[in-house]
């Protein structure tokens, strides 16, 4: 049994130690906001925060979490009012929406570290893949969110 802290809540998880955190979140805890996209840490759909730092949960085994606090898209804010979330709505960023939880988590992590990211900063930090091609709106929403933070 492994104890992890997710969105401020402690959970005892009965899963193999090498289970990717993604599946612990989705299958064991029912937090399905974090998505599976590739399983190879390439697409970013599985991005969560570990002590505020973005990680790709599809490639993070359960036993690597330790005591670090996990934040998923569900825990980014209590009522979807994180500046990134509000900017995402105002700019109507999503199309199909599948990649967007990971995109939002990546953007939030960037803005926590770089208050006014340049386009180059965004290019380097938000490498998430969007098959619908919402990249221009993602960029615009990040700049908009930065203005409010």
């Amino acid at each position: 049994m492994t104890t992890i802290t997710v969105n401020g809540n402690r959970h005892d998880v009965d899963a193999a130690s090498d289970t990717p955190l993604l599946w612990v979140l989705r299958d064991h805890l029912g937090l399905t906001g974090t998505k599976f996209g590739c399983g190879a840490a390439l697409c970013g759909a599985c991005t969560v925060h570990l002590d505020g730092e973005p990680v790709r949960s599809c490639s993070l085994p359960l036993d690597a979490v330790g005591s670090r606090r996990i934040t998923t898209i569900e825990g980014l804010s209590a009522d979807r009012t994180h500046p990134v979330q509000t900017a995402w709505i105002e700019e109507q960023v999503p199309q199909c929406g599948y990649c967007q939880p990971g995109m939002i988590m990546a953007a939030a992590a960037l803005l926590a570290e770089v208050k006014r990211p340049s386009d180059a900063d965004i290019d380097s930090a938000v490498t998430n893949i969007c098959r619908c091609g919402t990249y221009a709106r993602v960029r615009k929403a990040i700049h908009a969110a930065a203005e409010r933070m």
Binding site: A40, A41, E53, P54, C58, S59, A64, L110, E113, V126
Partner: peptide, 19 residues
């Protein structure tokens, strides 16, 4: 880079599932 650290994807051991 900021918010895309090497450790974002590279863990403490080789990941056999993801490569």
């Amino acid at each position: 880079a900021a918010a895309m650290r090497c450790m974002t994807c590279h863990g403490r051991s080789n990941n056999g599932a993801s490569g």
